[in-house]
């Protein structure tokens, strides 16, 4: 037990170092911006002494280490500055936009898992068969298409061509602003409000982006499941289970899969983190009012505070999910000391 605590402390320590590095990188990115923040604040034609005064007031004359200190102490208090575009504090913007991304990414992960894990198992059990080849090609294809290409093709086929799904956006016009925001997750909020019309409208709008993200991340899940299963199926305990006369699928599901399940937790956590990235692009195609949309709009306009804040938050979520995977691995796998 003592050893476990110790190794956990080591992990925690490395996470803290990583978070520190994250903050340094985002700080640097915020400093080397193409737009001079002073000129942006006082205007291009301001006299030199006004510029100098503004520069001093913004703390840009201080040594870098002092500037970093004030940056990190603000960040730790949840202060990322204000967005020039929305005029809101960045942190409240992020709180406003994050649920939309979370809703999309979570549903996508759910669907990707439900499809990807069985596909990987089948692929491993029938290694080399036609089914295996087909699954493999479908997965490589999912891995090779940029998400925005998938999203555009999806819109073209299912919205323009077949008219099966609604167009871009998160809600139909009639439901816009009708559901009181409690959690920010539309599905949950509309259910809480008892508005089934709004609920189904939200489901319709979610369908295409979620399916596209799910396909995008399914590739990785299937690939890893297949590799883990192939490894597990080679184990001697599998041979002995077969020798006892257990049927094919009960060996696979009862003996091989439990060994793989723990490793899969790590894969799922990483996929979830990767979905954040896919969501950024999907959101721009679907005009989805989420974190990605917020980030790209800020990028286009050189609005650096939201860029730095969002990057830092996404990085922190990424690190957090990795840590979670590590903890789950330790809890569920008795072999890991």
């Amino acid at each position: 037990m003592n050893r476990k605590v110790k190794s956990f402390a080591a992990t925690l320590g490395s996470v803290l170092v990583t978070l520190f590095g994250l903050s340094v990188i985002t700080f640097m990115i915020g400093r080397v911006m193409p737009v001079d923040p002073v000129l942006a604040a006082v205007g291009d034609n301001a006299p030199a002494d006004v510029v100098a005064a503004a520069r001093a007031e913004m703390g840009l004359d201080d040594p870098l280490i002092v500037q970093y200190w004030s940056y990190i102490s603000n960040v730790l208090q949840g202060d990322f500055g204000r967005s020039v575009l929305t005029r809101n504090p960045v942190i409240s913007d992020i709180a406003h936009y994050f649920p939309a991304t979370l809703e999309m990414a979570t549903l996508a992960l759910l669907i990707a898992t439900l499809l990807g894990v069985p596909a990987g198992i089948i692929s491993a059990v029938k290694q080399g068969s036609l089914t295996d080849q087909i699954i493999r090609v479908v997965c490589i294809a999912g891995h090779s298409v940029p998400v925005f290409v998938l999203a555009l093709l999806g819109l073209l086929i299912f919205y323009v061509g077949l008219d099966l799904v609604p167009g871009p956006g998160r809600q139909g016009v009639i439901y816009d602003g009708m559901v009181p925001s409690v959690t920010g997750l539309l599905l949950v909020d509309s259910l809480l409000a008892g508005d089934m019309g709004a609920f189904w409208d939200a489901v319709h709008h979610l369908t295409l982006p979620v399916l596209i993200l799910a396909y995008f991340s399914m590739a990785y899940i299937t690939r890893m499941t297949r590799a883990f299963m192939l490894d597990a199926l080679k184990g001697e305990f599998i041979i002995s289970a077969r020798a006892k006369g257990l049927s094919g699928w009960s060996v696979v599901m009862g003996h091989a899969f439990p060994n793989v399940a723990v490793q899969l937790i790590t894969v799922l956590a990483l996929t979830y983190a990767g979905l954040l990235e896919g969501a950024v692009i999907t959101e721009t195609v679907f005009a989805w009012p989420g974190l990605g949309q917020y980030l790209t709009t800020a990028l286009m306009n050189g609005d650096m505070n939201p860029v730095v804040g969002t990057t830092l938050i996404i990085g922190a979520v990424y690190v957090g999910l990795n840590l979670l995977a590590d903890i789950l691995y330790r809890v569920f796998d008795p072999r890991v000391a």
Binding site: T18, G21, L22, I25, T26, I29, A273, G274, L276, E277, V280, I281, L295, T296, L299, V307, V308, T311, I314, G315, Y318, V319, N322
Partner: peptide, 10 residues
């Protein structure tokens, strides 16, 4: 610790 595209964007 960053998703690749996000860091590249920043």
């Amino acid at each position: 610790a960053f998703p690749r595209l996000i860091l590249a964007l920043a």
